[in-house]
Each structure stands twice: as structure tokens, then as C-alpha cells.
Design a protein around this nucleic acid. Structure first.
Lengths: 212, 212
DNA sequence: GTTGACACAGAATAAATAGTCGGGTATCAT
DNA sequence: ATGATACCCGACTATTTATTCTGTGTCAAC
């Protein structure tokens, strides 16, 4: 009933992770049994069942090598899981809605604990070039409800998505979205502006070999 | 004897890729057979053998679900493969040697064709901040022998690795490495300076929420 | 001092999965 | 026309893999 991972369970989880990483497919009961240095398959089944209960991995009964590590499992190991790749947004002016494409991408390390709250977006436009975000880059976004001044955020403006810097000041206009490109205009807060999440990191795509 | 992939082979390769992406483990012969809409396992074996011959994937005989897609397979599909994560370099001053840690990371798309010549490095130091490379970022490097002025390069200086911008001019000092941070000094070419590769892209890690 | 979770043993059975044998058709370039 | 290549059929066997059953010992908590 408790969701804590025991040392032996973590050992098995790690064995499964390494095996998949090395071989490209999951291990059999026998292979896990040998790695655990025990003689009975029952113990492996016991441990696996615990790991399944704890949502660390999933498995299909009667199916050979049908083990897959879940986000919680990656978290327990401190390893990078996958994040859903949602679609295309814009750093220029709000045009593209967010769509789910079904693609998955491996996350950079250190965000495993947010695995169920993060997603990737491809950025279009050049309104954030001074923050190092260019056309075609992919941003890792974490869903949030609270924001600090200076955060780079995913915002919905009149139902359309965009990446901007959020600024909160103690003098008018108090709250606004600031493009990191002097050629673009500030967006002031109205009922049509909703903040959806913070940008955690940027995966840059090409264009590294031009003189700055 | 030829290494070209046929339409049917590519179809199977795509089936395998999607299956692994969705289930977390590779398909059985029967599952592949059904997806291919044929009735005999022999055909699946035939196709798999061709794909193995062509180095698109590898497989272990008599082992259930023992299929793994090789870099050439990812290339044929236009999908991101994995790159080895080598270790830590520095953008500040040359200190850390490159080591293989055994970690693997999924590559951003578009570099699949270089899969056997690229690797990832973690950057330490702040000498390249004006090029958008910060302490802790991960760079994707491609081994090269020829370089153009303006390329961001991985260089070995006195046996130690560093990331800098390469500049070639027609007046003295002709060739040098330029840090993208005014607080750092230019490195002039000597016998101790060797260029190892070009930086293709940067995976930024955190620090996105500070005001620029 | 019993209860429950955890970890393991040994042996047998059931199911899934891979491979074999011996064919067939259609296309295409020499 | 002929050999090479890609692709396919169907029934069969061999092997791998998963599961079930009945136990033991420990250790911490109540």
C-alpha cells in the first residue's frame, strides 16, 4: 500500500534500466534473476509486482520482455524520461495553436521530477532572440500557476500561444509580456492573456556557426 | 550485397520504431507480421535479415523481441538517434580532459546522418555567454577536419578541451580562438592548439528565468 | 509474541515466441 | 530465357519465457 521504493526494488529497476540502455530491449525474468544473484523466478515476480504497484514501471502479463519504465521510475533513478512533444508555438506574434503530435523526446537531465507536468514546443519567430531563443528552437515548458517577474513564459493571448518574458512591476503598467527583440511591441495584460507555464530550457537547432 | 533499403523493408523498420516508441519494448515476429498484413513468419524473417545485413538494426537469434534500431536505421527513418555523452569541457579556460561516461542522450532531429561522428559535451565556464552558451549547457559536437572563420569549435589547447569561436583573418594574427565574453583573452594558434570539431547545437540547462 | 511486509527457494506447468522446411509469384536487368 | 532479388504462403517443431504452487527466514511494528 505504500509507494516507497525498497533498496532491492531500486536495484532491480536499475538493472532493467541498464539492460534496456545497453541492449535496446528489456530483460527476461531469468536475466533479471541472474543479475539479482538469486535462484528463483518468484522473487523477481514479487519485486516486479511491487514496482508495478508503485507505478515505477508497467508490464504486460504473459508477454515476453514487456517491461517499460514509467516517469516515476526514471525519477527514482534520477534518469531522464521522455516528454511529450506538443507542437508549434511562436515567439513572434501569436498565431499557432498548440497541438499534440504524438512525438516523444528525451528530456535533458534534472527535470525528471516534473515529468508529468512538462512538455516540448517548437518555437517559430524571432521575438525572443536576445534571450537566446531563435526560430526553430525547441523549448521545454513546465505547467505553472505562479510566476515571477523575469520568467520566460508560455502565454496564451486571445487563444493563441506565444513565448515571452513576463514582467511584474510596482508602477504602471504593472504586468506585461516583453519580447526580447526591440522590433516587437510589449503585450499588456487583459482578460485575453493567460500564462500557461515557464520555459525551463531551450534545445537549440543549428545556426551555431554564424558570427555573432 | 547492396545496402539500399526497399520500400517494404522501410515499412517494417517504421513499424518497429513506432512499436518501441509506443510500448517501450520491441515487437514479436507475429506482431510485425500482422502489421505488415501478411500471413507467414518467413517473410518477416526475410525482411529482418535484410535490415540486419544493411546495418539498419541488430537482432539476437532465438531471443524474444531482441530488436534494436541502429543509427543507420534512424537515419533511414529521419528520426533522432542517440549520441554518446562524453563528459565535461570548459568554456572558461582549458582544464578538464574529455572522458567517456557511458551515458547516452537522444539527439535533436536533423543530425541523424552524422550519428557516428557526433557527441555531447557538458560545458563549464562562462567564456561563451555572448554566443548563448552558459555554464552547464550541453553542446552537440561533430568531428571535423576543416573549419571556417566564425565556427564555434571544440579545441584542444595544451591537451585540454575548450569551446571557443574560431577566427581566420588575412592579417595578423591570422588564426586565433575568440571567447564570446570580453572578460576573457584571445588564444593565439601554436603547436599546442588543435581543432577537434564544430559545435552543431546547444541544449540549454536551466537559468532561463533570469532577466537578460 | 503475533502480524505483516519483504525477500527468497525449488519444482512443475503453461504460454508465448522463434525458427524450420519446402515450396510459390512477380519483377527486372543481362 | 534466365538468373537474381524481393516478397510471400502454410504447417510444423524447438526454444524461450512466464507463471503457479507451496514453502522458509527475517525484521520491524503494534
Amino acid at each position: 500500500m505504500n509507494n516507497l521504493i525498497t533498496p532491492r526494488q531500486k536495484e532491480l529497476l536499475s538493472i532493467v534500466y541498464s539492460y534496456i540502455k545497453n541492449e535496446g530491449y528489456p530483460p527476461t525474468f531469468d536475466e533479471m534473476r541472474k543479475k539479482l544473484k538469486i535462484v528463483s523466478n518468484q522473487s523477481v515476480i514479487d519485486l516486479l509486482n511491487k514496482l508495478v504497484e508503485g507505478k515505477f514501471l508497467k508490464r504486460n502479463e504473459n508477454i515476453a520482455r514487456s517491461i517499460a519504465i514509467l516517469p516515476l521510475g526514471y525519477e527514482a533513478l534520477g534518469k531522464p524520461p521522455l516528454a511529450p512533444f506538443l507542437g508549434v508555438t511562436t515567439a513572434g506574434f501569436p498565431i499557432d495553436p498548440i497541438e499534440m503530435t504524438g512525438e516523444w523526446q528525451e528530456l535533458p537531465g534534472g527535470v525528471a521530477r516534473f515529468a508529468d507536468q512538462v512538455f516540448l514546443l517548437k518555437v517559430h519567430g524571432d521575438s525572443m532572440i536576445n534571450a537566446g531563443i531563435n526560430d526553430g528552437d525547441v523549448v521545454l515548458v513546465k505547467s505553472e500557476k505562479e510566476f515571477s517577474s523575469g520568467d520566460i513564459v508560455l502565454a496564451e493571448v486571445s487563444g493563441e500561444s506565444t513565448i515571452k518574458r513576463f514582467v511584474s512591476e510596482d508602477k504602471p503598467p504593472y504586468l506585461y509580456l516583453k519580447p526580447e527583440n526591440p522590433e516587437y511591441k510589449i503585450i499588456y495584460f487583459t482578460e485575453e492573456v493567460v500564462l500557461k507555464g515557464k520555459v525551463l530550457s531551450v534545445v537549440k537547432q543549428g545556426q551555431m556557426n554564424k558570427i555573432a
